[in-house]
Design a binder for these strands. Structure first.
Length: 439
RNA sequence: UCCUCGGUAGCUCAGCGGUAGAGCAACCGGCUGUUAACCGGUGGGUCGCAGGUUCGAAUCCUGCCCGAGGAGCCA
C-alpha cells in the first residue's frame, strides 16, 4: 500500500490509507487511545480502541517519537485537532524508542533546546518555520528565474579580505591563508559582466562577536547583480523581490503562518503598498525626533552625521512607517569602497538599506557599483586597501566597465520577519552563533 | 569585549544560614472522546566548579566555567 502524507489527508476521507511517521504524543483513557502522529507534512490524530485487539496492544507499547506505520480509515471529526482523524486498523512499529525522549511537550529553555536542536526541529512549530524558510528560498529562485536571471555561484574559500572591515574566519589552505566568504558580491560582479543578470543564494560567514537576536556567524544571503542597472532600477528590483516572496508565503504557507500565530496585517500591507523611501539625511532627523525622549534621558544615543543605526534606531524607523522603508544616499565614508558616488554630491553614495517594520531591522543592503577604473583605484587608496588582491576586480573596469548594481538580502532576517519570530536562530536548521557550534 | 540576570531532579522552577522541594516527564495502577487529557502511587539530587566565612552553606564572600538578554561590533 502506498504511503499517504498527512498534508493530503483532506482528499482521502472515507478511504483506507497508510501513514508513515513518528509518534508525537499518546493519550489514553482506559479502553481508547489517541495517537498524535507526525510525518513531516503535518500531524494527525489516530484512534484505536480495545475492540481493535492487536493494534490496541501495540499502541500501548508506543513511546514518544517511536517510528511507525499505521493503516486506517480517514474520517472528518470536529473533535480531532485539524478536523480529520484516522481510525486505526493496523500498526507496524518500525523502531520503538526505549529511552526517555529528551524533549517533552512542556516548556524548555533556549539553551536546552539549542543543545537538542537535532530533535527540536521535529516539533510542529519548528517544522512550520523550516517549511516557511523553504518557501522563502524557493520564491527567491522563482522570482529571479522568471525574470531571466542566471543562477551562478561565488566561491566560499577566498584569498583575501574582500572589504577589509568585517572579521573573517581564517582557514589553512594548504600552506596559505584563506578566508570563508563574507559575501559573494565581488565575484557576482564578474559573472554579471559575463551573463548580464545573475543571482545566487549562498552562505556568508562573519567572525564578528555579535550577540544579538539578529546575527548568526553563518547565514544565507540572496545576492543579485545586474549589468547596466542603476540605483533606481536596483531599488525597484528589490521591492519587487520582497513583495513577491511575502506574497508567496501568504498564499502558499497560510497554514504555517497560522501555526506560528503570525498576525499578517503588516505583511499584507508590505505587499499592497509602495515601500517608503527616505534619504539618510532625512532618517537622522526622523529618528532623532522619534526618539527624542529616550535620547534626552540618555537611554539611546543621538545620531550624528556619519553614524550607523543601532537596533533602537532601526526599530523606530520601522514602526514609524509601518511598512518596509529604503534609506538611501549614505555618506561614502560609512559604506564600502566600491559604491558609486551620487553625481550631484560625491560625498554620498548610490546605496540603500531596506529596513523591515515591526523591529526586524535591515534585511537588504545594496548599491550601484563604481564603474570607472580610476575612481575605483582612488577609493581603494582612500580606504587603505592594497590594489594587488583586487587586480581581477579592477580588470572588470578595464575590460568593458559598465554601470551596474546589486544587493544582498539576508534570508534568515527576512524569514524571521515573515514568521514574526523573536530570534532568527529558529529560521535555520542548525544555527551557528558566537557561543554555539554544536550540534 | 562590556553591562544585567541566571546555573538546584530528565525538563521548568521554588527554597536564600538550621534534615533537598513542587509541577511536568519516566515507571506502576485506574478511566471508551482525549485535546500540553485527567486521577492515585513509586523511584529520582556532586544544589555549575574551586576556595573562604560559620558550630552549621544550595543559601553569605572571592575566583573561575557555562548560558540567556542587551550593548558594542556588524557590505
Amino acid at each position: 500500500m502506498e504511503q499517504t502524507y498527512i498534508e493530503d489527508i483532506a482528499h482521502k476521507v472515507g478511504e483506507e490509507v497508510l501513514i508513515c511517521g513518528w509518534l508525537y504524543n499518546r493519550r489514553e483513557s482506559g479502553k481508547i487511545q489517541f495517537l498524535l502522529i507526525r510525518d513531516g507534512t503535518g500531524v494527525i490524530q489516530a484512534v484505536v480502541t480495545k475492540a481493535d485487539g492487536e493494534a490496541f496492544e501495540k499502541a500501548l507499547r508506543l513511546t514518544q517519537e517511536s517510528s511507525l506505520k499505521v493503516r486506517g480509515t480517514v474520517r472528518e471529526d470536529a473533535r480531532a485537532p485539524g478536523g480529520y482523524e484516522l481510525q486505526i486498523k493496523d500498526i507496524e512499529i518500525v523502531q520503538r524508542v526505549e529511552e526517555k525522549y529528551p524533549i517533552d511537550l512542556k516548556e524548555h529553555g533556549p539553551a536546552f533546546l539549542l543543545d537538542h536542536r537535532h530533535l527540536w526541529i521535529r516539533t510542529p512549530r519548528q517544522t512550520a518555520i523550516l517549511r516557511l524558510r523553504h518557501e522563502v528560498m524557493q520564491a527567491i529562485r522563482d522570482f529571479f528565474n522568471e525574470r531571466g536571471f542566471i543562477a551562478t555561484e561565488a566561491p566560499i574559500l577566498t584569498p583575501s579580505a574582500c572589504e577589509g572591515t568585517t572579521t573573517l574566519f581564517e582557514v589553512n589552505y594548504f600552506d596559505e591563508k584563506a578566508y570563508l566568504s563574507q559575501s559573494g558580491q565581488l565575484y557576482l560582479e564578474a559573472t554579471a559582466m559575463a551573463l548580464g543578470r545573475v543571482y545566487w543564494i549562498g552562505p556568508a560567514f562573519r567572525a564578528e562577536k555579535s550577540k544579538t537576536r539578529k546575527h548568526l556567524t553563518e547565514f544565507w544571503m540572496a545576492e543579485a547583480e545586474v549589468a547596466f542597472f542603476d540605483h533606481e532600477q536596483n531599488l525597484k528590483l528589490q521591492e519587487e523581490l520582497v513583495k513577491y516572496v511575502i506574497g508567496r508565503c501568504l498564499q502558499k504557507r497560510a497554514r504555517e503562518l497560522k501555526e506560528l500565530g503570525r498576525q499578517t496585517e503588516s505583511l499584507e500591507r508590505a505587499v499592497a503598498e509602495p515601500f517608503a523611501r527616505i534619504t539618510y539625511a532625512e532618517s537622522l532627523e526622523i529618528i532623532n525626533e522619534l526618539l527624542k525622549e529616550r535620547i534626552a534621558s540618555g537611554e539611546v544615543e543621538k545620531l550624528n552625521w556619519g553614524d550607523d543605526f543601532g537596533a533602537p534606531h532601526e526599530e523606530a524607523l520601522g514602526q514609524h512607517f509601518g511598512r518596509p522603508v529604503f534609506v538611501e544616499f549614505f555618506p561614502a565614508k560609512m559604506k564600502a569602497f566600491y559604491m558609486e558616488p551620487k553625481p550631484d554630491n560625491p560625498d554620498l553614495v548610490l546605496a540603500a538599506d531596506l529596513i523591515a517594520p515591526e523591529g526586524y531591522g535591515e534585511i537588504i543592503g545594496g548599491s550601484q557599483r563604481i564603474s570607472d577604473i580610476n575612481l575605483l583605484k582612488q577609493r581603494l587608496k582612500d580606504f587603505g586597501l592594497p590594489e594587488e588582491p583586487y587586480q581581477w576586480y579592477i580588470d572588470l573596469r578595464k575590460y568593458g566597465g559598465v554601470p551596474h548594481s546589486g544587493f544582498g538580502l539576508g534570508v534568515e532576517r527576512l524569514t524571521t520577519w515573515i514568521a514574526g519570530l523573536e530570534h532568527l536562530r529558529e529560521t535555520i536548521p542548525f544555527p551557528r552563533m558566537i557561543y554555539r557550534l554544536k550540534p
